[in-house]
Amino acid sequence: MTLDLSIITDNAGLFAQGAVATVYISVAAIISGLLIAFPVALLRLSPRRVMSWPAVAYVELFRNIPFIVMLSLFFYGLPFFGLRLQPMTTGIVALALFGSAYFAEIVRGAILSVPRGQMESARAIGMSYLRALREIIFPQMLRFFIPAATNTSISLVKESAVLATLSVAELTYQGLIVQGQTFAPFEVFLATATIYWGLTALLAAGFRTSERRLGGQAQRGFSSRHRLAARYLSLEPEPRS
């Protein structure tokens, strides 16, 4: 058996469209997921049960269903509530919510990784809770947050393939189309896999850059052993779905 690379070059346009759609879906879901995650994490950290309980429920709800099931529920369920969204939009919303549950847990863990005395010394001097979070806690939590958030973001890029089940023309769907036309599954999925690999590698590089930009200064205060431990802890694969 030989590889017929013309199958890929002849359909480069479709692969490119698919890759662009996958990037668009992933970036939108990651950004919205992160934006949702912060308030959810802060609620979950509240000492008041009325505040923390809904956040716990939210996280557990979205973390404990396979994404493909959640996406189907959204796609077939939302119209019952009068919400008719494009498959692409449904997919982005579902992926963002799915990711936000994992991101929220990461934010919570990252905040808790900062010693309690940091918040206390900030509050004692008169900073508001939000200012103390922004100026004192966030810069110190990045070294935990960024590696873990990178992993989750990479998982979301991979999960976005599930949108193919709604015929959203993202990378996996385009691959299936090309396969249907060419009957050359090996070449097609080799190309698809390579593009996913490239996209996730780019994403990881992006996070590393942001880590240097945002956290470079913050990290000067910490020992390298501590940083190594943080990296090691972030290796746990998630999300699982």
Partner: peptide
Amino acid sequence: QQFHLWPH
């Protein structure tokens, strides 16, 4: 007792 300076 533990200072709690802001390390960053």
